[in-house]
Amino acid sequence: MHKPFPKLWLWQLLLAALMFGLWWALTAGNILPPFFFGEPLKVVERVFAWFSSGAIWEHIGITLLETALAFAIGTLLGLGFGLWLALSPTASALADPYIKAANAMPRVVLAPIFAVWFGLGIWSKVALGVTLVFFIVFFNVFQGIREVSPVLIANARMLGASRRQLLSHIYLPSATAWVFSSLHTSVGMAFVGAVVGEYLGSSRGVGYLILQAEGAFDINTVFAGILVLTGFALLLDALVSFAEKRLLKWQPQHTERAGN
């Protein structure tokens, strides 16, 4: 693979600077009203103030905790149900229409219900994240198990594998590989669940900060919140890439996933 041009990162940085410059010029020159579009310098200042005072950490901590819990619980549930339904044709035939319906439903509308059930603390956000993560993992595992090569199964059976050994040596590792292939998407979804949950009603978290600022028409703080969220989303994604490399070392280096 050859690089499109040398020092790509430098140009990428320049592009970011250019965008901020454009934003600044448009709002400072009053071509775009700063009241609605914010002022980049004040946004940066706000972000800086958050970090220098340390006030932001409590909120980031909450949001990341919700993300982690939603991801862990959603993945475990998805893995369990995926394995179970993939290996039991009767159960999967029975559950099929309901799973399709539950997946088709826009699950964000569940947020108010979760708020009623679990209160305004972290658990209503975790629940929303779980509903988002669950289906991604579930469908990946389900498909992955269905597509395990019959030759692998036949070979293991000829080598004397019992049903339980088939599960632990073939189905489970195969399913785990599929969970990892959807890791980027599911971690992202857990984050979305946490932030949207906070935005819809909470007392802490980055989503809460954005909600508060919006209520006060403080558009700069809204942008600052978005900037912080984006930064941490990128950080999570890098973390996932790192984990992927460590845990899937048996896989041939696949081409970088496209987009997202």
Partner: peptide
């Protein structure tokens, strides 16, 4: 199953996640 037999398949039958 034939417990006395070993079977070598035409296709790759090694588990990719094991060394």
């Amino acid at each position: 199953l034939n417990r006395q037999a070993g079977y070598m398949f035409q296709a790759d039958a090694l588990l990719p996640w094991k060394t």
